[in-house]
């Protein structure tokens, strides 16, 4: 990825390095650094535990669709395209349609459930993920990813509010 040195959140929020809001974010340097670090750990892990980068981008796209976050939808579509030029996974992230691929359908169901009704998750959801081949590492990575994109969308919403009010 060519943008690995840039701050993803600044890019998504449309903040140039010399903007007042970029400076405001830098009053919390730990937060800026570890937000970017989390993005790298979730989307460019050294060890993906069998939950591969293209699947990660596709799952993030599904979270963004669930949140109707146009900026994140475009961002994860682009990332998915870069990782999966054949568009195999992109075709499976088709709004509302249940995928015929069992592994992918199970992942997507989990993404939607944890994004939209986090309190409805059950132990059987993790058993289902395990049954379609996700390791414990992959299951934790998927939970972190779903939770992270939900976090990211809310941070972006707050920055958008501050920018629009200027």
């Amino acid at each position: 990825m060519s943008d690995s040195d840039a701050d993803v959140l600044d890019q998504l929020a449309g903040l140039s390095p010399d903007s007042p809001l970029a400076a405001l974010r830098r009053q919390r340097p730990d937060v800026v650094a570890h937000m970017q670090g989390s993005d790298d750990a979730i989307f460019r892990p050294k060890d993906d535990g069998g939950f591969v980068p293209a699947e990660r981008a596709a799952a993030a796209l599904q979270v963004a669709l669930g949140l109707r976050d146009e900026i994140l939808i475009a961002h994860y579509r682009e990332r998915l395209h870069a990782l999966d030029p054949s568009e195999t996974l992109a075709e499976r992230v088709s709004d509302g349609e249940v995928s015929r691929d069992k592994r992918w359908a199970t992942i997507i169901a989990h993404v939607d459930r944890v994004t939209k009704e986090p309190e409805s998750a059950q132990p059987s959801d993790l058993q289902a993920l395990s049954a379609v081949g996700l390791s414990d590492h992959a299951i934790v990575s998927l939970s972190q990813l779903i939770a992270y994109v939900n976090f990211q969308s809310r941070v972006l919403a707050g920055l958008r509010m501050l920018r629009e009010a200027r």
Partner: peptide
């Protein structure tokens, strides 16, 4: 969470 140590060490 330690099943994914990279994500945990940033979070």
């Amino acid at each position: 969470l330690a099943h994914d140590p990279e994500a945990l060490s940033e979070r």
